[in-house]
Design a protein around this nucleic acid. Structure first.
Lengths: 197, 197
DNA sequence: CCCATAACTGACGCTAGAGTCAGATAACAA
DNA sequence: TTGTTATCTGACTCTAGCGTCAGTTATGGG
């Protein structure tokens, strides 16, 4: 071999650029030329690393999820009690910073794409399952330690995770009925319902 | 005028076909030719009633929302108590029948499209606001009548509505973590948390 | 019956943009 | 320095599909 492989690094760069375009323009308006420009390469190079636009976007979805999961794990302080952990999970996912907004917009694109592409739900299952599990763990710990008055931790976790997704969508499209601040308050109120006094 | 106008009826037919394509293939894969075929006309006729693909889809989003709001109002029995009304609202929106699944898929497309089209959030605001208000009315009535132990009806309504949206998405993409039945159970458990004993 | 025009058709022009490819470049080994 | 091959380029090909339009059909009024 004449040169050490730059494949992993290049793919990383290109996928990052793809996520940026995905979040700014959406899949429907995603152009390989835009991805190439942002990554600092020619369109030919994008095709050198990814066979098709579909493959590029599929890998970008996976990439975005990996990034987000990694960030969540760094954010979580093992010393926090379960209630604080639940609150921090919501805070960390609030679509308020540029980074979280970008993540959410890519996830939305993933969900819509998953309606018509049978290979995409698997990506969602994998990473979304982890996220759901983190909430469930905290809920069960909260219940066991008597901090939260939860009957069914699974139903609690499903409700909390679902609520976050639904509220985030309204924040993202700038609905007049939901802002990031209001979402934060809604999440707080949700948890407060279960905190033992 | 030589003939009575068929505009309203034709637009209705074409928008209905557009919603069908939107739900089956998504905006990204929507072809005017497919819409025309389903509606039973030529592509020229679609352009005769709608200036552009963008206008067609925008009107289809509006059309879908009107249909759904109409259906909800027919479903709601004024004789029901607030708790039953909240449960029925969730049941009616569960993505289980072909019609509700179709509606949800179109809404998802709307939300994603609204990320990049400033004219779409207005449609969401209008109809989504009505829907949110119906939940809020029931929550306030339930609180006032002592049937529900709710501190903040607004936070309750936001949480419930958000939860429904988030859970529906996972059902729609056939997530292994959420089915329509499980969503029903999650909604029931959510309400049960507030029912006074 | 005939006219006016609304309604409809479908072939065609045109463009955007995905994917190809022949060649240029550059990094490493020896 | 030179050979080898990974990496990269960007002009080009090709196709899908939007929107146009000249022409056709249908309908109701007069």
């Amino acid at each position: 071999m004449a040169r050490p492989s730059a494949v992993a690094e290049r793919r990383h760069e290109i996928l990052d650029a793809t996520c940026q375009v995905l979040s700014e323009r959406g899949f429907r308006e995603l152009r390989i030329a835009d991805v190439a420009k942002i990554a600092g390469y020619s369109t030919g190079t994008v095709h050198y690393y990814f066979d098709s636009k579909e493959e590029l976007v599929r890998e970008a979805f996976r990439f975005q999820y990996e990034q987000s999961v990694g960030r969540r794990e760094r954010d979580l302080d093992p010393g926090d009690d379960p209630v604080a952990r639940l609150r921090k999970l919501a805070d960390g996912y609030l679509p308020s910073s540029a980074a979280t907004i970008r993540s959410w917009r890519v996830w939305l694109e993933l969900w819509v794409s998953a309606l018509g592409d049978a290979s995409l739900p698997a990506i969602n299952n994998h990473y979304y399952g982890d996220w759901r599990q983190a909430v469930l763990d905290a809920a069960e710990a909260g219940k066991d330690q008597g901090l939260l008055n939860i009957k069914d931790p699974v139903a609690f976790a499903d409700a909390y995770v679902g609520m976050l997704d639904g509220l985030a969508i309204q924040v993202l499209i700038h609905s007049e009925h939901m802002t990031a601040d209001r979402m934060r308050a809604t999440c707080k109120a949700f948890i407060d319902n279960f905190v033992t006094m």
